[in-house]
Amino acid sequence: MDVTRSDTYPLRRRDVVEAILAGRGEALVIAGLGAPAWDCTAAGDHPLTFPLWGAMGGAAMIGLGLALAQPSRRVLVITGDGEMLMGLGSLATIAVQAPENLAIVVLDNERYGETGMQLTHTAHGIDLAALAAAAGLPITGTVHDQAGLEAAIADIHGAPGPVFLNIKVRAEDLPLVLPPKDGVHLKDRFRIALLGEEAAV
């Protein structure tokens, strides 16, 4: 395995996600496939978290659809750098729609963790927050440490968005904490929790 700078980044992804979700309140959460979904589950499985088991490149767009359909609710997308890189065009689509209630959080370990820790483009300096800023998202930034994380968490939950925060996290292989994987169940429990019993199929 390549040795790179992300091996020693101070922020640990499970702590980051737990800190973000501790203040989730009424927020609706989309968790990107693989490790970000496991991180969200480790922080506590929740009917209003929709964890992805596929759909690579689609997490931010699911967040956009949800944010437009539910303008009074905060929508958080928590995903990986590899997943975000597969859907970069969606940053432009999201910037055009500009929902204030959407926040995208990338857990950037500079690796495709789930598939064997191969380097992603961010390991070579590609700056996701700069791409989001260039697309025109009003609040963007890269977080490297605990102080930065605390400021970022306030923006994630409260700033008029779309917010895009790229959080540099240590590259680490953690124990799996798996959410339910039946898609129909995940969809139905989410809709029932959000919209009521009659929203089941």
Partner: peptide, 26 residues
């Protein structure tokens, strides 16, 4: 209704999944 221009068609599938989670048809 809201018309949403995409950069690629696959975005639309993810987008409409999110809208449905939020209770809207697309």
């Amino acid at each position: 209704l809201t018309a949403v221009s995409l950069t690629t068609e696959e975005e639309g599938i993810a987008f409409l999944a999110g809208a449905w989670l939020g209770g809207q048809r697309g």
